[in-house]
């Protein structure tokens, strides 16, 4: 037994230890969050710049649409895979209550179902003769609004204020994008959307790396 670990504490030191231990415990659990945000930052910046490059820089440069869409889709899939792997890693070793597991499951399914629903809505509107230039605005804006909503909801459910702020910001970006229109809404999404994920990654990395308990290794 370690005597050092068992020495009595004065009340102030004990309260301070409770606070720093609880803070440290949560920081350590959130260690993968900066990487998830970094992944999404790269996906948004590079993916939306690729879509922007289809038409925005003509006649000087034009990225062929199939290549741009391929880059965008590939990055989105990679983003989902990276977040899923890191998310599972962060949650490992924890067994939640049935109620919390239910919340998580409904949230996850709503997220995926929401994307399918937006896609189907768009397909239906195209069938009813929605012009291409309207579709070019509607699809990305609706998808991004859905992402924004899920961030806000996640923040509300799991009490993560930065997620509420991030979701709100993304919603504003999406709506501004709707007014900006094609093709420059993609530039906006790359910079104002992707940029905020990159800033978030730096902020979270700083938070996760500071204020660790020192000299308390058991």
């Amino acid at each position: 037994m370690d005597d050092n670990e068992d020495r009595p504490l004065d009340p102030a030191a004990a309260l301070a230890l409770v606070a720093s231990q609880q803070d440290d415990f949560e920081r350590r659990q959130a260690r993968s969050v900066p990487w998830i945000l970094l992944a999404w930052g790269i996906v948004w910046v590079v993916g939306f710049l690729a879509l922007w490059s289809i038409d925005a820089l003509r006649p000087a440069f034009a990225l062929p649409a199939p290549i741009a869409i391929g880059i965008f889709t590939g990055l989105m899939v990679a983003g989902v895979v990276v977040s899923a792997i890191l998310g599972i890693r962060m949650g490992r070793g924890f067994r939640s209550t049935p109620a919390a597991a239910f919340t998580g499951k409904v949230f996850g399914i709503t997220c995926s179902a929401g994307f399918v629903a937006v896609y189907l809505l768009g397909a239906a509107l195209l069938q009813h003769g929605m012009p291409r230039d309207v579709a070019n605005v509607l699809f990305p804006v609706l998808f991004i609004l859905l992402v924004a909503l899920m961030y806000v909801m996640a923040g509300a459910i799991w009490h993560v204020k930065p997620a509420v702020a991030l979701g709100t910001w993304i919603a504003v970006v999406a709506l501004v994008g709707a007014f900006v229109g094609y093709p420059h809404l993609y530039l906006l999404f790359a910079l104002a959307g992707g940029g905020v994920f990159l800033i978030g990654a730096v902020v979270m990395a700083t938070w996760a790396r500071t204020g660790r308990l020192k000299g308390l290794n058991g």
Binding site: L9, V18, F25, T97, P98, G218
Partner: peptide, 20 residues
């Protein structure tokens, strides 16, 4: 009221009731 056990209990107290 001992450093190591206080740390353990404080950490476990951050879990929701029913969570392990």
């Amino acid at each position: 009221h001992a450093q190591a056990r206080l740390r353990i209990v404080a950490a476990l107290a951050t879990l929701d009731e029913g969570e392990s």
